[in-house]
Amino acid sequence: SSGKTTFSKRLTIQLMTNGIKPTPISLDNYFVEREETPRDEYGDYDYESINALDLELFNSHIEALIKGQEVEIPRFNFSVGRKEYQGDFLTIDEDTVIILEGIHALNPKLTERIPEEYKYKVYVSALTTISIDDHSWIPTTDNRLIRRIIRDFNYRGYSAQETISRWPSVRAGEDKWIFPFQENVDAMFNSALLFELAVLRLHIEPILMTVPQNAPEYAEAYRLLRFIKLFTPIQGKEIPPTSLLREFLGGSSFSY
């Protein structure tokens, strides 16, 4: 929910304008099959663990690409929890820059077979810079949770109740698998937009209202509903198709 995918696509375009040949690879396509996903201490699927990725397949593909060989990149179907192969074959040459995009891209375990001098690491996150008033700041976690609820509902087949239920696990995963590596990056990019909560309001409200009042997640849904009402809504049609927000709202110039 940080906007990594759109960042990688826009970075790809910018590199191309500078005469560099980039090829983006999303780590989301390298998840293990759903039943092979590791579980946390509560017995739930731990999607935030680096071991939720098919590291052997990923590394074999990267090594093959570096050797100039052709590989077929999988597409992970989140609705059924399976990798699918749709003929996305890829080869690169020695001048190609590979852009790896995913929550574990900064983890040295992911690319331990690649020398450090060949890596340039960028940390992308929505670091909210606005406050409600002089004394009430807006947690960046609320910004990211709202993005995630909309994305999961629109593209991954998850309800708001399911996303909210998994949020504590996501946060724990960040503390364990992401934040320890954020200080070792070469650059940081803040993907938060000053106007985005006003835009997201019209999209998040109907999704949050589907959470049953007798569900444990209702309290959080109600809190987010009260919070988002603080913003005067902006119509989505005002947002250009290249905007990072389109990753969550739809209507993007990019395919995801």
Rank of each mutant, 00 (worst) to 15 (best):
Glu63Pro: 01
Ala64Val: 07
Leu110Ala: 01
Ser131Cys: 03
Val97Tyr: 10
Phe89Arg: 15
Pro180Asn: 06
Ser136Asp: 07
Ala187Lys: 15
Ser79Lys: 13
Gln69His: 15
Val122Phe: 00
Leu90Gly: 11
Asn190Arg: 09
Arg171Cys: 13
Leu65Lys: 10
Pro139Val: 04
Glu84Lys: 12
Ile73Glu: 01
Tyr85Met: 04
Leu65Val: 08
Ala187Thr: 07
Ser191Ala: 09
Thr129Met: 01
Ala192Gly: 01
Ile62Lys: 03
Lys119Tyr: 00
Ile138Ser: 04
Glu84Met: 06
Val97Pro: 00
Arg75Pro: 00
Ser136Ala: 04
Tyr120Pro: 00
Gln86Gly: 04
Val170Gln: 08
Ala187Val: 10
Pro115Thr: 07
Gly81Asp: 11
Gln86Phe: 03
Glu183Met: 07
Asn77Gln: 09
Val185Met: 01
Asp93Ile: 12
Ile130Phe: 04
Leu90Ser: 14
Trp137His: 11
Val185Thr: 05
Pro168Cys: 12
Gln69Asp: 15
Gln182His: 07
Gln161Trp: 04
Leu127Phe: 05
Asn107Ser: 06
Ile99Asn: 01
Leu110Asp: 01
Ser169Tyr: 15
Leu100Phe: 08
Asp88Ile: 09
Ile92Phe: 09
Tyr123Gln: 01
Tyr120Phe: 14
Phe181Leu: 04
Asn190Thr: 09
Asp142Ile: 08
Asn184Gln: 14
Val80Asn: 13
Ser79Thr: 13
Glu70Gln: 15
Met188Asn: 02
Val185Arg: 02
Phe89Ile: 08
Ile150Cys: 06
Ile92Gly: 04
Thr163Ser: 13
Ile164Gly: 07
Trp137Arg: 12
Ser136Gln: 10
Gly173Glu: 05
Asp134His: 11
Val122Asn: 00
Ile146Asn: 07
Thr163Asn: 09
Glu162Met: 10
Ser191Thr: 08
Lys119Trp: 00
Asp142Gly: 01
Ile92Tyr: 10
Ile164Glu: 03
Arg147Leu: 07
Ile178Cys: 03
Pro108Ile: 06
Arg148Tyr: 08
Thr96Phe: 10
Asp88Pro: 00
Ser159Val: 02
Glu63Gly: 09
Gly157Trp: 06
Glu117Ile: 05
Asp93Ala: 14
Asn143Asp: 11
